[in-house]
């Protein structure tokens, strides 16, 4: 089952956990120096390494499509990968917990994603598939620099461990920016929902490691667990400090958001995220009891522009049509 259809650990503050390994084939140059024929050869080699592992292959070329955009929305591929014009392919397993981007910035970007706080579990799955890569392909590696990657920022483990967090109270209180600057001092980084350059909409942030050389995978993950534990504590403390008149106001905001998602006729994606965030906080505080995290989380992905367009029989062509389709989906899911 997809990560957004399941409940996970620490779900009041953590949406999902991801592990990504960057690997490259020694015999081929990196993106930029790689010919389309070379890319096709790499795709075939990686594909055959994963034969029998239950992965489905999607081939792409020629730039952005709605299908690719929907995969970006679900966090299975990167925006850069979706926009690439040269040959590139995705392998994804049935449960969608593991996927392999072939010929992204690196030849291989292996990713695992699980709901809630589950970095250790995601890491275990990733290493299992990394062993398969290692046993069947000659991977570029150096004793000193570790796994050799296109960009020097990924040298070493080539691993990016990231956790998508839901921090509305820290956002509202304005403390989030000081957390972001503290993280950067210890080799971690905080970004918006879709990585580099995206804002922290709806109180959703990605926290990940920046340093990949001179630290083991296990220590990197341990450091993230430690920090996330501290951030969780702060977020929860702030949430429970909302009392009296403030709590009444928050209750009003949450219930108004519920009303809008249930009964609006048109909803933009920005508006959806705002109300999503209020309702999710409402569930965490026990203000809302008839909507589950999973129902709301599913809606979060299904109302995104490309995913919504693909799910409609008559694909909405204009923004206005899409906003109506989004509102209709929210109504049919929540408004019963």
């Amino acid at each position: 089952m997809a990560w957004y259809n399941e409940i996970g650990n620490e779900f009041d503050t953590v949406l999902s956990s991801r592990i990504r390994f960057a690997r490259n084939l020694r015999a081929y140059p990196f993106e930029g120096k790689l010919t389309p024929d070379g890319a096709k050869e790499i795709i075939e080699k990686v594909d055959s390494a994963f034969k029998g592992q239950g992965f489905k292959r999607h081939d792409f070329s020629g730039g952005f499509t709605t299908d690719a955009a929907s995969l970006v929305e679900k966090h299975y591929i990167s925006r850069e990968f979706a926009a690439k014009k040269s040959p590139h392919s995705l392998l994804i397993n049935e449960s969608t917990s593991a996927s392999v981007m072939i010929c992204e910035e690196d030849h291989i970007r292996l990713q695992t994603i699980l709901p809630g706080l589950a970095l250790n579990e995601a890491y275990d799955i990733a290493t299992k598939y990394d062993d398969i890569i290692d046993s069947s392909l000659d991977i570029a590696y150096d004793e000193e620099l570790g796994y050799l990657t296109h960009c020097p920022t990924n040298l070493g483990t080539g691993m990016r461990a990231s956790v998508m967090m839901f921090l509305p109270a820290l956002t509202m209180s304005g403390r989030i920016s000081s957390i972001a600057s503290q993280l950067s001092k210890i080799g971690l980084t905080m970004r918006g929902m879709y990585g580099e350059g995206s804002e922290g909409k709806g109180g959703i942030y990605q926290i990940s490691n920046q340093i990949t050389l001179g630290i083991t995978e296990e220590d990197t993950i341990k450091k993230l667990y430690d920090i996330i534990g501290q951030i969780n504590e702060q977020e929860r403390k702030l949430r429970s400090s909302i009392k009296g008149e403030n709590l009444e106001r928050l209750r009003d905001t949450v219930l108004r958001s519920e009303g809008i998602l249930k009964y609006a006729h048109m909803l933009s994606s920005g508006e959806f995220i705002e109300h999503f965030s209020n309702i999710r906080l409402g569930i965490a505080l026990g203000i809302i009891t008839d909507i589950s995290y999973v129902t709301l989380g599913k809606l979060f992905i299904e109302t995104m522009p490309a995913t919504l367009t693909l799910s409609e029989k008559n694909a909405p062509g204009t923004d206005s049509e899409r906003d109506r389709a989004r509102a209709a989906l929210c109504h049919s899911t929540l408004g019963k």
């Binding site: 590696y141 000193e144 796994y147 020097p152 070493g156 340093i211 990949t212 050389l213 001179g214 296990e218």
Partner: peptide, 13 residues
């Protein structure tokens, strides 16, 4: 970028 310049961690078999 990385401070320490020597890899520790996973390695190919």
């Amino acid at each position: 970028i990385h401070g320490n310049a020597k890899h520790i961690g996973r390695a190919p078999a």
